[in-house]
Amino acid sequence: MPLNENEWYIEAPWGRICIIAWGDCLNPPVLLCHGSLDSAATFRPLVAMLPENFYYIAMEFPGNGKSDWFPPGLMLSSYDLVYPIAVVVEHFRWQKFVYMAHSFGTIIGKLYNLSYPGKISKVINLDPTPNLLTVPADEFSEWYHFYFSKFYEKYETLNTPKETGPIYTYQEAIDTLKKKRDLTDELAAATLERISEPVCKHMIRFTFDQRMKLVTRPPFSPDSLQSLFTSIPTPTLSIIAEQSIDNGRYDRALFKLDEKAFPLKNYSIPTPTLSIIAEQSIDNGRYDRALFKLDEKAFPLKNYSIPTPTLSIIAEQSIDNGRYDRALFKLDEKAFPLKNYR
């Protein structure tokens, strides 16, 4: 049964913070924080797969989703986004809570955890990209100009009120989100609903704060970042996307890929699991009380796989025509170590 969803606003000194809640407020709380230029809607598919015995609160950072902007004209830093978390925690009077975040939200969570030690009981990081914080000494000038010089050079554009922003058709806006964020149609539509508003018939405009495109990250040296992050005692689970590794986003913070780099032994990365299941064991009822082991979709971390038995019907004519000359292994059952190919 899906959890009940509720939405409301929390008052902050600069305006309102929008939150979406799922579940029973008497259950242990889990705070969900999105990535850059995103919204609480990004967590809907995930919450649907999570245990029902927790209370899930997804907040939208100022200038994102339906939350109010920070006062105009100011340059924004990662530290500015730590206090909104404190506002939410204070509103609910949480003594302890679990923190789950994606991408940029994991950075804000780390800064909150360092600033308010002892409040977070456990951390779940969804692709925490630490390169956003890593600045070697010889690149400090580059870091400064990327954030500070660029902000003032684009001051008018970044501080443009939403009322004067460009307008799009619904499909143009969907296509823009899909291209820039690599979203499915469903997620793009859910995200657009929270970061846009109608302008006139068939036209909409984005409502997020343009300054959120250039939020200043603190310039930690690689050694300082590792020393700081590995000193945090909070038990932490990191789900790391292979694509982010391939794109080099962890090259300057390889310690995030190594559980042994954390001396407190409180950091873990889920290990991909391949299960070879014998049909006879299924027939004998050995999985009757653990049917989830037969279903890859039952593992929300998507780190579990079962090799699919494959039967290939190969035409002799295709062999004679040389279509398998560059893939002769397809003609040899013994070339498949899992013994699932015939």
Results as ranks from 00 to 15, higher is better:
residue 2 P to G: 00
residue 6 N to E: 12
residue 7 E to Y: 15
residue 13 P to F: 01
residue 13 P to E: 08
residue 15 G to P: 02
residue 16 R to W: 05
residue 22 W to H: 05
residue 33 C to D: 10
residue 38 D to R: 09
residue 50 L to K: 07
residue 52 E to Q: 03
residue 55 Y to P: 01
residue 58 A to F: 00
residue 63 G to C: 00
residue 69 W to M: 12
residue 69 W to V: 04
residue 75 M to V: 08
residue 84 P to K: 02
residue 86 A to V: 06
residue 94 W to K: 05
residue 95 Q to V: 03
residue 111 L to R: 05
residue 114 L to Y: 04
residue 116 Y to W: 01
residue 126 L to W: 00
residue 128 P to Q: 06
residue 128 P to K: 07
residue 130 P to R: 02
residue 138 D to K: 05
residue 141 S to P: 00
residue 153 E to Q: 08
residue 154 K to L: 01
residue 157 T to Q: 10
residue 158 L to D: 05
residue 160 T to S: 10
residue 162 K to H: 06
residue 166 P to E: 09
residue 167 I to T: 13
residue 168 Y to K: 13
residue 169 T to E: 14
residue 172 E to Y: 11
residue 175 D to C: 02
residue 176 T to Q: 09
residue 177 L to R: 11
residue 183 L to V: 03
residue 184 T to I: 00
residue 185 D to V: 14
residue 192 L to E: 02
residue 195 I to N: 06
residue 196 S to Q: 11
residue 201 K to W: 13
residue 201 K to I: 11
residue 205 R to G: 00
residue 206 F to V: 02
residue 208 F to M: 01
residue 209 D to E: 03
residue 210 Q to W: 12
residue 226 Q to F: 14
residue 229 F to E: 07
residue 234 T to C: 15
residue 235 P to C: 12
residue 242 E to M: 08
residue 251 D to H: 14
residue 254 L to N: 04
residue 259 E to G: 04
residue 261 A to V: 13
residue 261 A to E: 09
residue 265 K to F: 07
residue 272 P to E: 02
residue 272 P to I: 02
residue 279 E to W: 08
residue 280 Q to P: 03
residue 281 S to F: 15
residue 295 D to T: 11
residue 304 Y to K: 09
residue 310 T to P: 15
residue 311 L to T: 15
residue 317 Q to D: 10
residue 325 D to E: 11
residue 326 R to V: 08
residue 330 K to P: 04
residue 336 F to D: 15
residue 339 K to R: 12
